[in-house]
Design a protein around this nucleic acid. Structure first.
Lengths: 222, 222
DNA sequence: TTCATATATTACCCATTGGTCATAAAATGT
DNA sequence: ACATTTTATGACCAATGGGTAATATATGAA
């Protein structure tokens, strides 16, 4: 019996890993509490003392996980951005005509907008952020807009969407979607999925290109 | 020559009136400056010192015209509300089917949303207000929503709009309109009127009831 | 001129709040 | 048991900004 391997099962990093995980969990708890309070009361009316109190700790303890109040806000934005980006990127990879893609974009975007971190991006004022952080957030927002614009442009090109200015059409659609973050409450009558479907339906019911004989002939001809 | 009426033309109240007008003009100037700064920088990041400085006065001078910072904010909301109410009430008085009325509502609402005081209602956080003031603002907002809902319900009833839930349809439409306040800049390519027309077109192009033979027969039959 | 009123200023108060520091208390490793 | 690191705390600092009081200045009336 070598003294070396008395109980070789548990890897020696386990405690470290445990600790790191416990730390991350606490960090996440701070973030979840903070985002809720930011959304409920507004960023600047939410004090770090209150956030800490609701977590049964005191303010300086927060500084073990975040460097500043703005740092907390930045992380909220980042979590929201990650959700949008993951969903949008997945849809852009899929196949389908422009109209289909647009419908999927609407559904996905609407659903993310009904989550706490998702609505961060439209409910919280990014002017609270430093110039650099704000630039990052705005750049991210522009990429989401671009996804809608290209889907619409593609739809107009492939004949699935009746001709229109993709930029204006995007303003109409994303406005409606962004505003969801202002009124959605999880305790409403309709589920998030049902609402997302409704928005996908209503925001595209006027877009489909008429399947006129001439257009069909045109498409069949090439 | 009576000493009494040496120059009887100018009414004796003129100076008073002049003074009152001058006062009102200054008050309005404060309001216009304040609303711009509130929109530019956000309410709580706009200090009364800065507002005063931009008007070439000092902070305490503002207190000749307003009782508090919140009082200024309340007046901004009120001016915006007045614009919405005047427009909406006028349209509700007009005749036309539900779809027509909805289109006119959209155009009018969009145009007010492109003014400083109009966008107040969606860009500024009414949680800055006292409970009573906030209740007033929210009540006003609900009446605008109600105008859209009734127009849509009327349209569904009179056959000009294809059947749908008026409440959800209103959320879709007013969301798009409210979001205008977040991106509109008066120096854009399109005029406010052109944008309003575009929104009226795009937000209703999918609503019109199909004029199917059976429906026409139905309508003709009663 | 003189008085009254409206309007403006300077200087100040004070409540709030993000953030820091020295230190204590747990938790972890040996 | 002991040493070390992590995590938490109480006390405090400093800046910000809304609001006020005492006072000065301009304006119109008598």
């Amino acid at each position: 019996m070598h003294g070396l391997t008395k109980k070789a099962e548990a890897p020696p990093w386990a405690p470290f890993e445990d600790r790191r995980r416990a730390r991350d969990e606490k960090r996440d708890a701070v973030l979840r509490m903070a985002v809720q309070m930011f959304l409920d009361e507004g960023y600047h009316r939410t004090t770090l003392n209150e956030v800490a109190a609701r977590l049964n700790i005191t303010k300086p303890a927060l500084y073990n996980y975040f460097r500043s109040k703005e740092d907390i806000l930045i992380e909220c934005y980042r979590l929201g951005q990650d959700m949008f980006e993951a969903n949008i990127a997945a849809i852009e990879r899929e196949s389908g005509d422009g109209l289909d893609k647009l419908r999927r974009l609407i559904r996905a975007y609407a659903q993310v907008m009904m989550t706490d971190f998702g609505m961060c991006l439209v409910r919280l004022d990014d002017r609270e952020l430093s110039t650099e952080a704000r630039a990052g957030v705005r750049k991210a927002k522009r990429t989401y807009d671009a996804a809608f614009r290209t889907a619409i442009a593609q739809g107009v090109a492939d004949g699935s969407i009746a001709p229109r200015d993709p930029k204006l059409a995007t303003l109409v659609i994303t406005g409606s979607l962004n505003w969801i973050g202002q009124w959605y409450r999880p305790d409403g009558e309709l589920s998030a999925a049902a609402l997302a479907d409704e928005f996908a339906l209503r925001l595209t019911e006027g877009l489909a290109a008429r399947k006129s004989r001439s257009r069909n002939a045109e498409r069949g001809a090439r």
